[in-house]
Design a protein around this nucleic acid. Structure first.
Lengths: 342, 342
DNA sequence: CTGTTAGCGCATTCAA
DNA sequence: TTGAATGCGCTAACAG
C-alpha cells in the first residue's frame, strides 16, 4: 500500500498538498491537482483510515446498535439501515452495524469510548433503555430510533404512532366501520415497555373512545398460530366486528386464516388493515393486505441527520421528529356490512 | 479521555511499561502491574483504537459483508452473526457488519483497502460472485459462507446441502414414503446460481433417483401465496404424493394452507419436512413443523476461524468445511399412507 | 497557492 | 524487569 508520502514524491509536491487535494479544504491550482490525482491513480493510493482518524480525531464512522440479530423473522429494519447508510455516505460518513443485544450495552460503550465511532444510533429503544442511559453518562453522541419515557428531551426520531393509529381508525370509520378490533404485539412486549406496543395500544383506545366507539384490543404473540386464536377471540368478544387493525405481521397471517376458515370474506365481511408494516408484506397475503407502511427510510435519514447535528456544531441541530406511516393500498379494505345475522 | 501517557505518569512508570502491561507481551513485575492497573482504573483509561491500529498495523476488526438488509422477512443470518461475533471476541477481534448490497462490492473493497478491517467475511455467496473475485484481486483476506464454482480452492464454510437433503430423503423413505415432492426457492435464484438453490435441487434429484424414486421438484417464490399454488401443482402432478420437503420458509405457510384446504391432514395424509430452516420457524405452524435446522452458529464460528487462520500465520490453517443441518423434531412427520382413492 | 513540521496515541525496537 | 526513542500515515496549524 502506498502512502501519502509516496504520492507526494511521485507528484513532486508536499504531503500537505496531497492531503489538501484529498480533503479540498484549501485551494489547489488546477495543474497541481491534476498531477496529484494522476499520481494517486497510478500508485493505486488509498488513504489509511486509521491514520486519518487518529490525526483528525474523528473516525467518520457512525455505529448502529443492531439488536435485530436477536429476532428471527420480521422486522422493518432493512429499509432503515439502507437509508441510514446512504445518508451517512452522502455526508462523508460510513455506517457500520454493531451486533450487540440490548443487554450487551457495555460492550458497545467500550467500543465507543475506544474511539471506534464518532456517534451511535440506537434502534428499538424501550421505555427505560439502559443503553441510552449509559451512552449519555459516557457522553457518547447518540440518537435514538424510538423514545424513552422522557419524551422529547433526548435526541430521537420515531414513528408517529398516535397519528398512524388515528388515521387508521379514521379511515375505517370513514368506510362505515364502528366495531373495530386491534391486534397488538405480545403482552410481554407491552410489559417490557416496548414503545410501539405501548403507544399504539393507547392510541387505539383514544381514537375509538374519542368517537364514542368501544375499543376491542388484544395483545398477541408474533406468530400465525396465536394470531388466529386471538382473531377468534376478537370475533367472539364482539360479534359485530367488521374491521381489524393489526400491528403484528406474523399474527396477520393467522387473522386471515381464521377469517377464511369461518367463511368470512375479506373485505366483504371483515376489513383488515396492517399498520407499521414492512415493505411488501401486503403482497404476501390474498387478498393483498392494505397496509400503513412504516416510514423506515425517512427515519433512517432523519436519525443520521439528528446525530450529525450533534457531531458537527456547524450543522443545524435537527429537532426530534415523529413520522406517521404511509397508506399503501391493497385489497383488504371495504365498506362496513352488518354482520350479525348475515 | 486520558491517554497512555497519563496512565504512565500517574503510575510512575514509562509509557512502554503501560503498553506491555496492556498487551501482556513482555513480563511485568507484580507490583508494577498492580500500580498500572490501579492507575488505569482510576483514570478510566480506554486505549484509543485508532492509535493502536495505526501503530500495530492491524485493526483487530473483522467485517461481515451483510447483504441481508436487502431482503425482507426470512433469513437464518441471526444465529450466524451472533456466533461469529462471539467467536471474534474470544479471539480478540471485533465483528462489525458492513451493510452493502452485493452490487456495492466496490465500496466494501475500498473500506478494506483503507484498512478499516483486517479481513472480510462474505455471506450469501453466489456461484459466480463478483465480491469474492474483487477481494481476491485486491489481496484482502476473506472467507466465504457459501461457495463459488471453484469449490474447495477458496477459503469457505458452507451448509452441507448434499448430506442434508440425502438425510431428509432417507428419513422420509425410512417412514415408508416413496412419492416425495420438493419445494425450492425461486427460479430466479436458481438461474442466478444461488448456491443453496442449485445444490439442493441437484441433491434432491440424486437422492431420489439413487433410490429408484421419481423426484417431483418445483421452484417457488418466497411467499405463502405462491407456496400454496406450487403445493397444488405438486399434488396434481403426483396424486400419490405423501411427503413434501421444503427449503422455502415463507412458502411453507402456503404448503400448510393448501393441504388444510384440501382436507389433507399433517402428518396423517402428507408429511412435511422443512430443511435449512431458521431457528424456531417450526413452532410458527400447526402442527409444529419438523425441520432440519441450518447450522448457523457452527458456521459462524468456523468462518471466523477460517479467516483468522489466514490473518495470523501462527494459527493453524482451517480447512474448508461443510456442515449438515440438524433434525429438530416437530409433529409434521409420520408414516406414509396410500393416498390414491383414500 | 504551497511547503514544513508538530503532533494524534500507541507498539515496538534498542538499550540498559 | 524497565525506559527512551522511533515511527505508523495522516491532519492541520504555521510560515511563506
Amino acid at each position: 500500500m502506498s502512502t501519502i508520502a509516496d504520492v507526494a514524491r511521485h507528484a513532486g509536491v508536499s504531503v500537505s498538498t496531497v492531503s489538501y487535494a484529498l480533503s479540498g479544504s484549501r485551494p489547489i491550482s488546477a495543474g497541481t491537482r491534476t498531477r496529484v490525482e494522476a499520481s494517486m491513480k497510478e500508485l493505486g493510493y488509498q488513504p489509511n483510515a486509521m491514520a486519518r482518524s487518529l490525526a483528525a480525531r474523528r473516525t467518520q464512522v457512525i455505529a448502529l446498535l443492531y439488536p435485530e440479530v436477536e429476532r428471527g423473522l420480521g422486522g422493518t429494519g432493512g429499509e432503515f439501515v439502507r437509508a441510514a447508510a446512504e445518508r451517512c455516505r452522502e455526508q462523508g460518513y460510513q455506517l457500520v452495524l454493531w451486533p450487540f443485544r440490548s443487554d450487551e450495552a457495555d460492550q458497545a460503550l467500550t467500543l465507543a469510548r475506544q474511539g471506534m465511532a464518532d456517534g451511535v444510533l440506537v434502534m428499538e429503544v424501550v421505555t427505560d433503555d439502559q443503553r441510552v442511559a449509559k451512552l449519555e453518562a459516557a457522553r457518547v453522541p447518540y440518537a435514538m430510533i424510538g423514545r424513552t419515557t422522557d419524551a422529547g428531551t433526548r435526541p430521537s426520531v420515531d414513528v408517529d404512532f398516535d397519528t398512524t393509529v388515528e388515521q387508521a381508525v379514521a379511515h375505517l370509520v370513514g368506510l362505515g366501520h364502528r366495531h373495530i378490533g386491534f391486534v397488538n404485539h405480545s403482552q410481554a412486549m407491552l410489559d417490557a415497555g416496548y414503545g410501539p406496543t405501548v403507544r399504539a395500544a393507547a392510541a387505539f383506545d383514544k381514537a375509538m373512545t374519542d368517537r364514542g366507539l368501544v375499543p376491542v384490543s388484544r395483545t398477541c404473540e408474533d406468530s400465525p398460530v396465536v394470531g388466529r386464536a386471538v382473531t377468534a377471540d376478537l370475533l367472539d368478544a364482539d360479534p359485530d366486528l367488521t374491521a381489524i387493525v393489526t400491528m403484528n405481521e406474523l399474527a396477520t397471517f393467522g387473522v386471515y386464516a381464521e377469517l377464511h376458515s369461518r367463511g368470512l370474506s375479506i373485505p366483504g365481511d371483515v376489513s383488515v388493515l396492517g399498520i407499521v408494516s414492512s415493505p411488501g408484506v401486503g403482497t404476501l397475503s390474498y387478498p393483498p393486505l392494505t397496509t400503513m407502511h412504516s416510514p423506515g427510510a425517512a427515519l433512517g435519514r432523519l436519525a443520521v441527520d439528528c446525530l450529525l447535528g450533534q457531531l458537527d456544531p456547524a450543522r443545524a441541530a435537527v429537532p426530534n421528529q415523529l413520522i406517521p406511516c404511509v397508506l399503501e393500498p391493497g385489497m383488504s379494505l371495504g365498506p362496513a356490512r352488518t354482520r350479525r345475522g348475515a
